[in-house]
Design a protein around this nucleic acid. Structure first.
Lengths: 129, 129
DNA sequence: GCTACGCTCTTACCGTTGTAGTAGGACGCG
DNA sequence: CGCGTCCTACTACAACGGTAAGAGCGTAGC
């Protein structure tokens, strides 16, 4: 399949690769901040699983350490997440928007941004039609 | 904890209770539509698990069949879902909105609804400040 | 009253996720 | 060259979610 499902921790690992570019396991693990981070081998296991899922690959070696890089794009992953989420709401968009807008702690700036996006989208839809 | 995490299938079951009020397992199962629905005992297992999670309870019996009713409200469950989802995006609201608006297949009506919600929210925020 | 059908309860199994230990190879420093 | 450190690769395991089979009991209808 083109697109594997990623769990929360897997996503956090991908996030590091998306932000930092190719990274060694040790650096991924340390990027979790000193407290409450998972053990080195935990991160390692997740990275290996991401590898079999083809979400990342071994780019090269430095010394005996592998350097991993993302294969899947951040946008693709997030689109997948959105789909997943939508399906929880029966696939209907409107209640999701409503819930997000009401329950999420939106700042005024967030609201303004969202409005702009919606206006742009509305305009685009009009043109298409 | 006050609020258990519900999986997809668990949510679908709760959905039936929220829509229909107190319901027997057989009716929950049948509400999944004749094709591709899970076996009776599968639904039953999920219902039992929801019971131990205190998401629903046995309301009464009809003959020897239990009738179950929701304990958790739909809004509470969906709020929980939204939180869960947000945490996947690092808790920041804006990118989530952006992703949803761009990637979700919004109808024109959805867009209009969302805009209205946002306008109301903006107005409310102004008044608060 | 007996029988059959439906419901309950119990038990089980597999895949995924998160967690980590351990054994052994490689590398670099003194 | 030898020792410690670091990384790899493998293995393990528990919780959870989805799936369901099997045994047994109650009720309703004949």
């Amino acid at each position: 399949m083109a697109f594997p499902k990623l769990s929360k921790l897997e996503l956090q690992i991908m996030e590091v690769l998306w932000n930092n570019g190719p990274t060694a396991i040790r650096d991924i693990q340390e990027s979790f901040g000193p407290k409450g981070r998972p053990a080195y081998t935990t991160v390692q296991t997740m990275v290996y699983r991401l590898e079999t899922k083809k979400a990342l690959r071994r780019a090269r070696k430095i010394g005996n350490a592998h350097i991993f890089e993302a294969v899947i794009s951040r946008d693709a992953a997030k689109a997948r997440l959105v789909d997943e989420f939508l399906s929880m709401f029966g696939g209907r968009m409107q209640p999701v928007m409503a819930q997000l807008i009401e329950a999420g702690n939106l700042s005024s700036a967030d609201v303004a941004d969202a409005e702009k996006l919606l206006r742009d989208l509305a305009a685009k839809k009009k043109k298409e039609a």
